[in-house]
Design a protein around this nucleic acid. Sequence first.
DNA 1: GTCGTTACGGTTGAG
DNA 2: AACTCAACCGTAACG
Length: 230
Amino acid sequence: MAVPLFGEVNQLGGVYVNGRPLPNEVRLQIVELAQLGIRPCQISRQLRVSHGCVSKILTRYYETGSIFPGAIGGSKPRVTTPEVVSYIRKLKKNDPAIFAWEIRERLLTDGLCDKHNIPSVSSISRILRNKPRPLAVCLNRHFFYGTSKTSTLLHHPLCLYPYSSDTHYLASNYSTLPTKTDRSVEIVSPHAMSALLGPQLSRSEHERNIISSGQDSYNKYMYFNCPLPV
DNA sequence: GTCGTTACGGTTGAG
DNA sequence: AACTCAACCGTAACG
């Protein structure tokens, strides 16, 4: 079982880090014990996790099917979704003289946005000013550096996330599908992801390509050597 | 004794 | 580059 390298001790003698999610291993244990029919109060005592926390994790699991914590930090979901951004660029390409406020009106009349999610004129201007970013950069690269900045990134076994601009990819030891509520991850369709990454490797192929492994205070990671897609 | 709920002090990260 | 602030965290305590 993963033991945090730092933290405080709760009334039950368990170690926790204030403000940070419990380790994924502990979250998984809570769910597994519950599935064996162990009562939440006993899980709480056995794993030395407060019953409020056990209750919350199990409730979340029953509602969403995920053992993972929610996305911490960041801002509200962007109104400038990839679809909206590409539409803005398309309008500008077709009519280079078009004004940002005209684009804004087109987004409404063409049905891409409504009054609740329409980007501001300044947002549209910024989009037109900025270069298009490669998809990979939108993914949360902080995952690799922080001591515990892991909670906002979810993983799918078939998805390897490009790391910076070098040739390394990473897969975590726990996997789940990214959800629409996970604001730190660009939602990518399987088709788009395979187009981005090229052919997926099998698990054993990945294992042969492990170049290093690491861990922070909670989780273990494995770094894979894969060719970058072009 | 059990467990749902919430105030609290804390961390995080996109904008 | 530093800052903001709304999202989330687990604990402790209440009922």
